[in-house]
């Protein structure tokens, strides 16, 4: 019998180890699995490499994980945004490593990692400093750079509805990086606002098929980062 549901976020993230590579879904606050991130802060794993488009805002969610000193390296495309102060300060002090990746290359690297593709060529970043040190090659008289697929030990994502097989549907622009991260994570952990029985989601509208998901935990009313930041919340 397959039932991927776990009773709590704490149990869902219990085995994330020091030094793990963790992909975290979300673009800004849309799709950010705040409750899973807070559980990871409570759990204590450190020296993490985190893959996310941004670096969080305020002192909640991803920004709180970074502030707690648990993140050794960020792989992202846009590490500053409104209300983003935690990462910039650590970065200027040389206390956190940054691998800056163009957004489309980041998305494709994650997709490739999840699809068993070790590397691919893209025209993005050709002739820029983000192509430095990367293998270049011409196809049809056009220049490309080679980029590597990205995999993770764990992926933490958020969705609107999951069934206990791990089939997922998302909410509007919160989908963003979650489907490729579900593919690229060896262990993909999902927080879902609603968990239903298999068959309750029309197979025609499943976005992420359950084979890409290992664990599902229900978080009925997930917090929104902007509301926590506006309220001055600092986690823990």
């Amino acid at each position: 019998m397959i039932d991927k549901q776990l009773p709590s976020v704490a149990e869902a993230v219990a085995d994330i180890h020091d030094g793990a590579t963790v992909m975290i879904g979300g673009f800004g606050e849309a799709g950010s699995p705040i409750e899973l991130i807070h559980a990871l802060i409570d759990q204590g794993a450190k020296n993490l490499t985190v893959v996310n488009n941004n670096t969080g805002s305020g002192e909640v969610g991803l920004a709180a994980l970074i502030k707690a000193g648990r993140v050794a390296k960020m792989i992202c495309s846009y590490p500053r945004s409104m209300n983003s102060t935690v990462f910039p300060e650590l970065y200027r002090n040389g206390e956190i490593e940054l691998e800056l990746v163009p957004q489309g290359t980041l998305a494709e690297r994650i997709r490739a990692g999840g699809a068993g593709i070790p590397a691919f060529y893209t025209a993005t970043a050709v002739g820029t400093m983000l192509a430095d040190g990367k293998e270049a090659r011409q196809f049809d008289d056009k220049e490309y750079v080679m980029e590597r697929g990205l995999k993770a030990d764990f992926s933490l994502i958020k969705c609107r509805k999951a069934d206990t097989y791990g089939n997922l549907i998302f909410n509007k622009t919160a989908r963003n990086f979650a489907p490729p991260m579900a593919m690229a994570g060896a262990v993909t952990i999902v927080q879902a606002a609603e968990v239903v029985a298999p068959g309750a989601i029309d197979p025609e509208i499943v976005v992420t098929p359950g084979i890409f998901v290992e664990r599902v935990v229900q978080v009925q009313n997930p917090a929104h980062e902007s509301e926590l930041v506006a309220a001055g919340v600092s986690y823990p």
Partner: peptide, 23 residues
């Protein structure tokens, strides 16, 4: 909060819009 644009500002979707993953 989960219907935003690339500048992370809240937007709307027109009739006939579609949502999709980053890749």
């Amino acid at each position: 909060p989960e219907l935003i644009n690339a500048g992370k500002r809240q937007v709307t979707a027109i009739p006939g819009a579609s949502y999709f993953q980053h890749p």
